[in-house]
Simulated scan of single mutants.
Amino acid sequence: MKNPIEALNKIFDSRIRLGVMSVLIVNDGVSFNELKQLLDLTDGNLASHLNTLEQAEYLKVTKAFIGKKTNTTYTITELGRQSFKQHLDALEKMIKGI
C-alpha cells in the first residue's frame, strides 16, 4: 500500500500557508493588510510565510504606491494553483481512504 502522506506538499504543512493559499485561490489579489486581518497574524509572522510561498514561486508580489503609502498585493501563480490543488486532492484521497 502506498504511503498516503507522500503526495502531500510539505510547504502547506503550516496552517498559515494553508490559510494564505486558501484566501488567494478564491481572490484575484489580496493586500498584505487584508491577509493580516483575515488570518489574524502579526506583520513578521505573515511576512515570513509569504516569503516561503514566494520563494516556491506559488505567489506573485506586486508593490505599488497609494498616495505616499506602499501597497503590497499578492496573487497566486499558476504553479501555486496547481500545487495547492494537488495538495487538496491528496488530502481528499487520504480522508476517503483511496
Rank of each mutant, 00 (worst) to 15 (best):
K63H: 07
I5D: 12
A90N: 06
S48Y: 15
R17K: 08
E78R: 12
L50N: 10
K36L: 11
L38D: 09
M21H: 01
H87Q: 03
G19Y: 01
H49R: 13
I66S: 14
S83T: 08
Y58V: 01
A56P: 12
D89F: 11
Q82M: 13
G97F: 08
V30R: 00
L46S: 04
S48D: 13
S83A: 10
T72L: 11
S31D: 03
N71V: 08
M94G: 07
N9K: 13
R17M: 01
S83D: 05
L91I: 11
L35D: 03
A47S: 14
E54Y: 15
L88D: 05
I66K: 09
G80T: 00
N71A: 04
L39D: 04
R15Q: 12
L24Y: 03
M1D: 15
L46V: 10
G67K: 06
H49V: 10
I11K: 11
H87R: 02
N9M: 08
E78F: 07
T62E: 15
I98D: 14
K2S: 10
N33G: 09
I11E: 07
L46C: 02
H87G: 00
A7T: 06
L24T: 01
N51D: 10
Q86W: 09
D28Q: 12
E57S: 15
K96V: 09
S48E: 12
N71W: 10
N3Y: 12
Y58K: 01
G67A: 06
K68S: 15
Y58G: 05
K85S: 11
L38W: 06
I5R: 11
V26K: 03
V61F: 10
D28I: 06
F84Q: 05
T77Y: 06
D28F: 06
Q37N: 01
R15S: 11
G80I: 03
R17N: 00
N9L: 01
L59P: 09
T72P: 04
K36H: 06
Y58T: 03
L39Q: 04
L35W: 01
G44I: 14
G97S: 05
T72C: 07
L53H: 02
A90R: 02
N9A: 04
Y58E: 02
V26D: 02
L8C: 04
K60G: 06
Q82D: 11
I98S: 14
E54P: 12
K96Q: 08
Y74D: 07
T73W: 02
K68T: 15
H87T: 00
L59V: 12
E6I: 09
E57N: 15
A47P: 14
T62A: 10
S14L: 03
T42P: 11
I76F: 07
I11A: 03
D40C: 13
K63E: 13
K96M: 13
A7W: 13
K85Q: 07
F12H: 08
S31A: 00
T77A: 03
E92Y: 07
V61N: 09
N3V: 15
V20T: 05
G29M: 08
